[in-house]
Simulated assay, not measured.
Amino acid sequence: MTAPLRLLPWTTPEGRPCYLSTDSQNSRLSLLADDLEEAQLDSGEQVLAGARAVLADTEAGERAVRFALTRATESLSDVLRIAVSRGGRISGNGQ
């Protein structure tokens, strides 16, 4: 049985998804993707904390709010990609 394609945590320069076909979860590229996913999740936690701080600051101006929202949407995009990737691997392993 062929292993399912893994959605990678990055895109092409044109914004298209990248996939990995491998039979080993320990391949060099798989481990790099794992590391990047962890870095993206860590970054998302920091962005969330920053966005909460901006929202709690009644003196925060439009630029601060827009910056926080921009970073938050980028992080949410990363987290959703990771969730889809991991969900695909879970359902792929159960078949």
Rank of each mutant, 00 (worst) to 15 (best):
R28T: 10
R28E: 08
L20R: 12
Y19S: 04
P17D: 14
G88C: 06
Q25L: 12
L20M: 08
A3G: 01
R6A: 08
A33L: 02
D35Y: 02
G44M: 07
G94M: 05
S24P: 03
S21Q: 12
N26F: 08
V79M: 12
L69Y: 02
S77N: 11
L48Y: 13
L41N: 11
P13F: 13
A72K: 14
D78H: 13
T70E: 08
A83V: 04
V84W: 05
A72G: 11
S27H: 07
E14Y: 07
Q46E: 02
T12G: 12
A60C: 10
D34H: 04
R16W: 02
V47I: 15
R16L: 05
A56V: 05
R89Q: 13
V54I: 15
P4E: 01
T22F: 06
E45Q: 05
T12E: 03
S77I: 06
I90S: 01
L32N: 03
I90R: 10
T70K: 14
D42G: 11
S30W: 10
V65H: 08
S91M: 07
S75V: 15
E37I: 03
A3H: 04
V54N: 09
D57Y: 05
A60M: 09
S27D: 01
R52I: 00
E74R: 15
Y19D: 00
L69S: 12
L20W: 07
D57P: 10
L5D: 04
R6V: 03
L36C: 11
D23Y: 10
E14T: 13
T12W: 06
R71S: 13
T70G: 00
G50D: 02
Y19R: 12
A64S: 12
R16I: 00
A68V: 07
N93W: 04
R16E: 05
L7F: 05
S30P: 03
A64W: 03
A33M: 05
S30H: 09
L80R: 14
S77C: 13
S75C: 07
E37Q: 08
L69K: 14
Q40G: 07
G61S: 10
Y19E: 01
S30G: 04
W10D: 06
P17Y: 01
L31Y: 13
G94R: 14
G88L: 09
L7T: 00
L31R: 15
S85G: 05
R6S: 01
G44A: 15
T70R: 12
G15H: 11
D34A: 08
N26V: 11
A33D: 06
L7Q: 01
R6I: 00
S43D: 09
R6P: 00
G50E: 09
L32D: 04
R63F: 02
Q25D: 02
